[in-house]
Amino acid sequence: MTCPAFSGRGRPLVDGYGRHVNYLRVSVTDRCDLRCTYCMSEQMTFLPRRDLLTLEELDRLCSAFVARGVRRIRLTGGEPLVRRDVTALLGSLSRHLDAGTLDELTLTTNGTMLAQRAQDLAACGVRRINVSLDTLDPDRYRTITRRGDLAEVLNGLDAAQSAGLSVKLNVVALRDVNEDELGDLVRFAHGRGMDLTLIEVMPLGETGHDRAARFLPLDVVRHRLSRTLTLEPLAYRSAGPARYVRVAETGGRLGFITPLTHTFCEGCNRVRVTCAGQLYTCLGHEAGRDLRAALRGSEGDGLLHDAIDDAIAHKPSGHDFVADRISGPAIARHMSVTGG
């Protein structure tokens, strides 16, 4: 697969606030084998397969962003590993790693299929992955995911590390659900040489659960953790929005992502593309641009780059998630559609 030539190759993506966009998150499917209570409703209606971008279209789209200065690409979902051809896409995109035009190719996964796919990911140039894991209790895990088996994820973590992949755990902090074991999750992750990031619940899509009842501010979590752990501020920054501390007792890094209590929009370098080709320049806004139409409207990439330029020019200064207005979704689309 190759990306057709474009005369504006190399022109960086800079929005109206002077922020350089160099990080692309691409959903390859809206489907997932789990139904996490903070992410999806139990009965989901997924897009028909004909609406999804093909493997070739995904490659062409990602390559267009690389040509414009994007240095990191993360594949997401839904659950990206339920799409069988995802490793073929990764293998094709790895040519940008080899050429030095891409710094990192990675993905976020729930871990249920890692035991079978970890070696393939490593062979495709993936060196680091994020794994969503909100509890270490098997019964609680099944309750949160509505169907999952914790043992599959733990086996997947073993397989990922055996394949040489660096793993970071993502944990959504949920009041009255997992708040009593967040310290244990930190110790578990750091004991295995993994970073961990705590995330406030995000108000996207109807899930059938009251988010306001489950919302747990990370200021509260940080204060509680500091009773038993020494949290030392770090200058370290990943490509994403997390702010990190070092835990003195474990030597590991702990991140905090706070979309509701402390915005991080001033330094936003990210855009997201859905599996159907909608480009969203902000997680917290409904306005998007249809890149699928641009991809299918011409064999060249002129229309595609025009659509990207238009979207970047209108990237908002920030989202408007507000903690005291999350009983219902602030954004109608689910996180699984947008891409994590």
Score class of each variant (00 low, 15 high):
residue 247 V to I: 14
residue 224 R to I: 05
residue 214 R to G: 01
residue 213 A to Q: 14
residue 219 D to T: 15
residue 209 H to G: 02
residue 226 S to I: 10
residue 226 S to M: 12
residue 207 T to N: 02
residue 228 T to F: 13
residue 204 L to I: 02
residue 219 D to A: 15
residue 196 L to S: 04
residue 247 V to P: 10
residue 222 R to T: 13
residue 242 A to V: 11
residue 215 F to C: 06
residue 250 T to Q: 12
residue 222 R to I: 08
residue 213 A to M: 12
residue 253 R to W: 09
residue 242 A to H: 12
residue 199 I to M: 06
residue 221 V to K: 07
residue 214 R to L: 13
residue 229 L to H: 10
residue 235 A to Q: 03
residue 236 Y to L: 00
residue 216 L to F: 10
residue 239 A to T: 05
residue 249 E to S: 14
residue 206 E to C: 00
residue 242 A to N: 13
residue 217 P to F: 09
residue 210 D to L: 07
residue 208 G to L: 00
residue 216 L to R: 07
residue 237 R to A: 13
residue 246 R to E: 13
residue 251 G to S: 10
residue 224 R to V: 09
residue 208 G to W: 01
residue 241 P to A: 05
residue 244 Y to T: 09
residue 252 G to E: 12
residue 230 T to P: 14
residue 240 G to Q: 01
residue 211 R to H: 05
residue 250 T to N: 13
residue 197 T to V: 07
residue 208 G to I: 02
residue 226 S to F: 12
residue 236 Y to T: 00
residue 232 E to Y: 02
residue 206 E to S: 02
residue 238 S to W: 00
residue 229 L to F: 12
residue 199 I to W: 02
residue 220 V to H: 14
residue 208 G to Q: 01
residue 248 A to G: 14
residue 255 G to D: 07
residue 238 S to L: 00
residue 218 L to N: 09
residue 234 L to A: 12
residue 204 L to G: 03
residue 223 H to F: 14
residue 252 G to V: 13
residue 222 R to W: 09
residue 202 M to C: 04
residue 245 V to C: 13
residue 222 R to Q: 15
residue 240 G to C: 01
residue 243 R to A: 15
residue 253 R to H: 13
residue 246 R to P: 08
residue 196 L to C: 08
residue 234 L to H: 03
residue 234 L to V: 04
residue 236 Y to R: 01
residue 235 A to G: 06
residue 234 L to K: 03
residue 210 D to C: 11
residue 233 P to L: 02
residue 238 S to Y: 00
residue 247 V to A: 12
residue 202 M to W: 06
residue 249 E to H: 14
residue 212 A to E: 05
residue 202 M to F: 06
residue 211 R to D: 03
residue 235 A to V: 02
residue 253 R to Q: 13
residue 204 L to K: 01
residue 211 R to L: 08
residue 213 A to I: 10
residue 251 G to E: 10
residue 228 T to C: 14
residue 250 T to W: 13
residue 225 L to I: 07
residue 254 L to I: 11
residue 196 L to H: 04
residue 197 T to W: 00
residue 231 L to H: 14
residue 197 T to A: 10
residue 235 A to C: 02
residue 221 V to Q: 07
residue 195 D to T: 05
residue 238 S to Q: 03
residue 224 R to M: 10
residue 220 V to G: 10
residue 197 T to M: 01
residue 253 R to S: 14
residue 217 P to M: 07
residue 255 G to H: 06
residue 203 P to K: 08
residue 244 Y to V: 09
residue 218 L to Y: 08
residue 254 L to H: 09
residue 244 Y to N: 12
residue 222 R to A: 15
residue 240 G to D: 05
residue 214 R to V: 02
residue 255 G to T: 07
residue 208 G to T: 01
residue 244 Y to W: 14
residue 229 L to G: 10
residue 253 R to L: 11
residue 255 G to Y: 04
residue 229 L to C: 11
residue 245 V to D: 15
residue 247 V to H: 11
residue 209 H to K: 04
residue 217 P to N: 11
residue 245 V to A: 08
residue 212 A to V: 00
residue 195 D to A: 12
residue 247 V to T: 11
residue 254 L to K: 09
residue 212 A to D: 05
residue 216 L to V: 06
residue 251 G to T: 10
residue 204 L to A: 02
residue 243 R to I: 10
residue 248 A to T: 15
residue 219 D to K: 14
residue 237 R to L: 09
residue 200 E to L: 04
residue 216 L to Q: 05
residue 239 A to H: 08
residue 197 T to C: 06
residue 255 G to Q: 06
residue 251 G to I: 11
residue 239 A to Q: 04
residue 201 V to I: 10
residue 207 T to E: 01
residue 217 P to A: 11
residue 253 R to A: 15
residue 228 T to P: 11
residue 231 L to P: 12
